[in-house]
Structure formats: C-alpha cells, structure tokens
C-alpha cells in the first residue's frame, strides 16, 4: 500500500513537472501557439463539432424533433442502405470514376510538371504556367457550359474535328461510355495545371549537382528525368497519393451536377449527388447520413492502408 502511495506521489510530481515545462514552453513560444489558436478553433467549430450530428445515422431524424429528440432506430438505416440496389449502383459509379481518376488524372500534373521543368525559356514557362492555372479558378457552373458546348454533336469543336476526318459525330455527354471519359478529361483540363505547383516546388529543391553528376556520367534528358527528377519528387507523389486515396469514396458534387443529364444517370449518379437528392431534397436525412458515415469509414480505412503500404515501401507516410 505505501508503495502505491509513493508511486502516486511520484507520478504526481512528474505531472507537475511536465505541466510546468509545458507552461514554460507555452510562455516561450507564445506567439507561435497564439497563431495556432484560430486554426484549432476552426477545426473544433467546423470539423469536430458537426461530427456530433453523425448520431442521426442511428436515429429517425425528423425536423420537428431535432437531433436529440428524434427516436433511436439502431442500425435500421444501415440495413436499409445495404439492402437497396441504389446503394450498390452509386457505390460502383463513385469507385469507377475514382479509379479512372487515379489512373488518368493523378499522373497528369506529374507529367505536366516534368515537361514544364524542362522548359528553359523563362518567360515562355511563366506564361504557360499562368495559362494552365486559369481553369482552376473558374467555377464548374461556368466551365460546365463550356464543356457542354465544346462537346455538342452539332456545333461543338471536337465533333467538328471528328467530321473533318470523316468520322460520325459523337454525343459525348449522353453516352454511357463517353460520359465518364468526358468527365475525367474535363477534370484534368481544370485541375492538372494547378496540380503542378507542388511538384514544381519539389523539383526546385532537387540539388543541381545531381544533374551535373548525371550529365558527366553521360545521362541524356530522359535518363536524368528517370534517375534524378522522379526520385526527387517521390515523397511528394507518395503524400499526394495518400490524400487522393482518401478521396476515393468521394466525387466532387459540382462537376457531376453540371455535367450529368437524364441519359447517363446510370453512370453519373454518385454518392454526393445521391445524398443531395435523397437527403437534402427529399428530407431523408438519417438514411443519407448513414451513407455518409459509411463513406467516411471506408475512406479512413483506405487512407490507413495506403499509408502503411507507402511506409513499407520506404517512403515517409502521413504519420
């Protein structure tokens, strides 16, 4: 017994020491910690606070009863979700679009950054970069109508070119095969340019002597890229890949919403649009919150898994 008391006293002393040193640390770096306060407040207020609302996934939420007042229904919403055919269709569409994205859209900024990195004429490079960034700053609502006009079978530029080669015009946005292609391509158009920023920054930090050494060893441009540039940005690619996999269960709402139409709903209904129509428009809040919760959990599992894999491959992961 006295032993335990001593132990307690010991830990208490340590706790006091620790809190004292923390206080010291706090007063020493008070500006830095002060600057952290708004960010923590933001996270608590807008990211952690709303999580409380997730409990309506286990309730039958009615507007009148509110979050607390609504009746508990256990996992009924999940049972309903997993037994509905809609669920599998939107899950499939979401995953398919994201796999396409990972295969085609994810490497696009890397390739673009590699190309930009080799441009030696400074003013040309800057102009090119600026032109590539522009689409990122235009909202999907505006870009969507440009895409629709560009892909129009009768007046669109793309079909005009096809016709020059004697090909039949294609109604890209009303065809279940071409719609995902158009979707990914328009996404690349909007975001690839802006995505190069991080890679270019990473490339700028590569030690120039490495290139010189490679040159002396007789490496040409392609070899230099393969053996110096790419390994130099490996860790950046790894981090962005983890982040991308975290979005695996998510397709941006706006882009789908502007580009979809009746003819392609079988491939264009994704989790975000489904949550919108079922939850927000049709007031089935609990049902769609259950879907959202499911989506988040899968995304979390994916992020953890990919982080493990990347660490096993010898890269630094997210944590």
């Amino acid at each position: 017994m006295p032993n335990a008391g001593q132990l307690n006293a010991g830990t208490k002393e340590m706790q006091i020491k620790r809190s004292r040193s923390f206080r010291k640390e706090l007063s020493r770096n008070r500006f830095l910690y002060g600057m952290l306060v708004p960010v923590i407040a933001y996270l608590l207020l807008f990211k952690y606070g709303p999580m409380f609302g997730e409990i309506i996934a286990f309730k039958n939420y009615r507007l009148a009863d509110g979050i607390w007042g609504s009746a508990w229904v256990g996992i009924d919403n999940f049972v309903k979700l997993f037994s509905s055919t809609d669920f599998y269709a939107v899950l499939r569409n979401t995953l398919v679009l994201n796999v396409y994205h990972l295969v085609f859209a994810f490497p696009a900024p890397i390739i673009l950054a590699l190309l930009l990195n080799e441009v030696r004429v400074e003013w040309y490079k800057r102009t090119l970069q600026n032109l590539l960034y522009i689409p990122h700053f235009i909202s999907w609502v505006a870009l969507g109508s440009i895409v629709i006009a560009l892909l129009s079978p009768s007046t669109g530029f793309l079909n005009y070119v096809l016709e020059l080669f004697g090909l039949e015009p294609i109604y890209f946005l009303a065809d279940t095969f071409w719609w995902p292609v158009s979707f990914i391509a328009s996404g690349i158009w909007k975001e690839a340019g802006f995505g190069t920023i991080l890679y270019l920054a990473a490339m700028a930090s590569i030690d120039p002597t490495l290139y010189e050494a490679a040159k002396i060893d007789g490496a040409r441009k392609a070899r230099q890229i393969w053996h110096v540039t790419l390994p130099g940005i490996r860790s950046t690619i790894a981090i962005l890949l983890i982040l991308q996999v975290g979005k695996m269960m998510d397709v941006g709402f706006e882009q789908v919403f502007v580009l979809r139409n009746n003819a392609v709903s079988s491939v264009s209904e994704v989790i975000s649009t489904y949550v919108y129509t079922r939850g927000i428009v049709n007031l089935q809040y609990s049902y769609t919150t259950a879907l959202g919760l499911f989506q988040s959990i899968i995304a979390l599992i994916l992020v953890i898994a990919v982080n493990r894999i990347i660490k096993a491959m010898g890269e630094r992961g997210l944590w």
């Binding site: 509905s84 009303a174 139409n261 009746n262 709903s265 079988s266 209904e269």
Partner: peptide, 21 residues
Amino acid sequence: INEIRSTFDTFLNEIRAKATT
C-alpha cells in the same frame, strides 16, 4: 410512394432518354 419515386423518377428519365436516342 415518395420512397419509390426517389429511385423511380431517375430510372424513368434515363429509360426514356435511352429509348428515344
């Protein structure tokens, strides 16, 4: 009825578009 229609309406529109085009 609302429950059915939230799935049915989307399906209907797509089938109609498909049959037409």
